[in-house]
């Protein structure tokens, strides 16, 4: 089939096309969709289920099982706070309380202004230099309350500069 050079399939179709012939395709497809859209829209579930020969319930069941997958749009920055023991030993519980109050969010919530989502994470593998957080794909170590505020301030500056 000749495709018009400008044709770009939507991310859901592209993910399906890339993976459907592979065994165990569902997780890679879900990752690909979420990587491009930021979340997995309800409409995508129908398309993926049909293409992979699964029921919608099966696809929804997989999405809801894994903490990483989300069905609502995330904020511009996803802030993940490590809640696991090695970070607890160096003040993760206090950092968690500080992050919640500073962002005005509980876990699994996104701010109304769309700037931030707050998520818990159980270990980022930076256990000798905690407390650790992850913002996007970047892990930060030894995050004190002051450093957390600095990191947020850095993001806010970017957010102001970017559009324009």
């Amino acid at each position: 089939m000749d495709l018009h050079p400008d044709f770009t399939p939507n991310p859901v179709q592209a993910a399906i096309a890339a993976w459907r012939s592979q065994p165990g395709a569902l997780l890679p497809v879900l990752h690909a969709v979420q990587d491009s859209l930021g979340y997995i829209p309800r409409d995508a579930i129908v398309v993926m289920a049909e293409a992979l020969g699964l029921t919608r319930a099966e696809v929804s069941g997989v999405i809801s099982f894994y903490h990483h997958f989300r069905t609502t749009p995330p904020g511009q920055h996803i802030v993940e706070i490590c809640r696991a023991e090695a970070c607890q030993a160096v003040g993760a519980r206090q950092l968690e309380a500080h992050a919640k109050s500073r962002l005005g969010l509980n876990y699994h919530q996104t701010r109304a202004d769309g700037q931030f989502s707050l998520e818990p994470v159980y270990c980022l593998g930076n256990c000798a230099c905690g407390p650790s957080i992850r913002i996007g794909d970047v892990v930060h170590g030894r995050v004190s309350e002051a450093r957390f505020d600095d990191l947020l301030a850095g993001l806010a500056i970017q957010a102001v500069e970017l559009p324009g």
Partner: peptide, 19 residues
């Protein structure tokens, strides 16, 4: 994986790999 501690258990891991 996708953020599930249980998938470190070998049979859960295999289920996950199978989609």
């Amino acid at each position: 994986g996708a953020g599930a501690y249980i998938c470190g258990e070998e049979t859960a891991l295999l289920e996950s790999l199978e989609g």
